[in-house]
Design a protein around this nucleic acid. Sequence first.
DNA 1: CTGTAGTTCAAACGTTCGTTTAAAATACTT
DNA 2: AAGTATTTTAAACGAACGTTTGAACTACAG
Lengths: 210, 210
Amino acid sequence: MSQIDTKEKILDVAEELFAKTGYRGTSMRAITSQAEVNLAAVNYHFGAKQGLITAVIERRLLPLNKLREQGLSAAKEKAAKEGKKPDVPAVLLAFIEPTLLLPDSAPGARNFITLIGRALADTDKTARNIFILNMKPIIRIFYTCLVEALPDIPKDVVYWRLNFVIGSLSHTMRAIDRCPVPMDEAVAHDARSLVKLLMPFVTAGMEAPL
Amino acid sequence: MSQIDTKEKILDVAEELFAKTGYRGTSMRAITSQAEVNLAAVNYHFGAKQGLITAVIERRLLPLNKLREQGLSAAKEKAAKEGKKPDVPAVLLAFIEPTLLLPDSAPGARNFITLIGRALADTDKTARNIFILNMKPIIRIFYTCLVEALPDIPKDVVYWRLNFVIGSLSHTMRAIDRCPVPMDEAVAHDARSLVKLLMPFVTAGMEAPL
DNA sequence: CTGTAGTTCAAACGTTCGTTTAAAATACTT
DNA sequence: AAGTATTTTAAACGAACGTTTGAACTACAG
């Protein structure tokens, strides 16, 4: 088995188990046995458990953030042709759409989205800090665009509303494979229809009068 | 030291530590040493660690849900006097206000709100199941009221929007003691102003056109 | 004061955890 | 094909975990 096979197999299994049982709740033995590699393989390839969760997160988060940045740039260019700044739904869509559509992009990414959905709420600082470190710059970019798109809303209100959006989005991400709060009704939820459901909600919330 | 003192001291410390470092991340030894009680005290008074987290959650969640129910009943009565059903902001306020104001009600409740804010996102089934078990009935009540208040919105859309609200709220609850996503600007956030910030957002989101 | 139920205590239990080690096996270069 | 570098392996490490135990201690009724 080549090195790359081992590393990627570990990453895939770790992604799945971290998403299901969290960072603390997933043991190295559970990862390595399901990945059918030796227990010491994680420490050899990633140094330690922390190095593994870092690699798991960054493997998909960096490309995702690139997608979000590209989407925002496209929206900016499109608006610039009419001498304007992108409006609220355009900005929010550039952030939300690549996120919720991620599970359709790669087979293993479905686990990743619930993992990331939990990251902000995780009590373990390891996963949360890695996540925040990677998210801070891009959130700042979107924040700036939202402030420009909402000239009548004070900056700190925009800040909080952006956080409300992040809260809704991350909660939805966690719900992709499981009803967020179980109800008796069966509720369908494919990724694309979730975007269509979430967008009007967050757009109206962002643009709401004070 | 009387039995009640020991039990409550354990509950207070456990509430604080569970909120800070999660269920798995908090050891019985950390709890008992900070509470200045014997290690075996938790097993004696609560049977096991799971019994402790159950007691920690239910101690404040049951009264909180009673407050929410009372608030909703009051809104229903008020609307009934005009032969109407309570509108969206009235329903949402009955859910949100007691929640965010909880930290001001009791000194230790500040820890509880972040604990509960994490509960839905927790990877550990222990805490999440206890929380969901206690929340399911009351969420159903509010869901029904929202459906009545939004006759033009399909039921399943209302369901998802309610979940978006829950996502925003729980994210905010986690942020009460710490910036949700750190920004360079200092952002003030006392409980009452958070209610004033969140309410227009979720109301507009709920009432948004399809 | 005596006896009983309730509570606290130090100590140890077995298990699981992340990590390390050094030898064995494989892959790659010359 | 030989020799070096990389990777895999089995075994063990010490530490931390939740829980159990039985004796010591406390409070209070008879």
